[in-house]
Design a protein around this nucleic acid. Structure first.
Length: 113
DNA sequence: TTCCTGACTCCAG
DNA sequence: CCTGGAGCCAGGA
């Protein structure tokens, strides 16, 4: 039996990612910062790795690095799925990079407060 | 138990 | 402008 504390880190990450509005994106660092540890951005990405197959579905394709670069696309099947999913939501991606990243950026710290 | 790795980010050269 | 090293937390061998 796991204590109530447990590691909500993953769940917290999933919850935040699931709240990302369609057509919006965010970065690992932003999520990590919202959770309280901006330096644990690696954990966010790692959580995303586990997010594969998790339900409700986790739009991991909306999570990119601080540069708006689709660093995690290589973990999708196929990798192009991430870019296509973003373009399908109105986000232009060129050379694995999101165009007007700041415009589509969704900051949980400001939105969720 | 220790050691290594990772879908990141920052700082220095 | 580009490259390398360090810090960070959690899990697997």
């Amino acid at each position: 039996m796991k204590s109530s504390l447990d590691y909500n880190f993953f769940e917290n990450v999933f919850d935040v990612v699931r709240q990302i509005p369609k057509g919006k994106v965010t970065s690992y660092g932003l999520i990590a910062a919202y959770l309280g540890s901006k330096q644990s951005s690696r954990m966010v990405g790692w959580a995303m790795n586990k997010a594969h197959g998790v339900q409700p579905m986790v739009p991991a394709h909306r999570v990119v690095n601080r540069n708006g670069l689709l660093t995690g696309k290589h973990h999708f099947s196929p990798p192009e799925a991430m870019q296509e999913a973003l373009e399908k939501e109105g986000i232009k991606v060129i050379d694995d990079k999101i165009i007007d990243f700041e415009t589509h950026l969704w900051n949980p710290s400001e939105t969720l407060l």
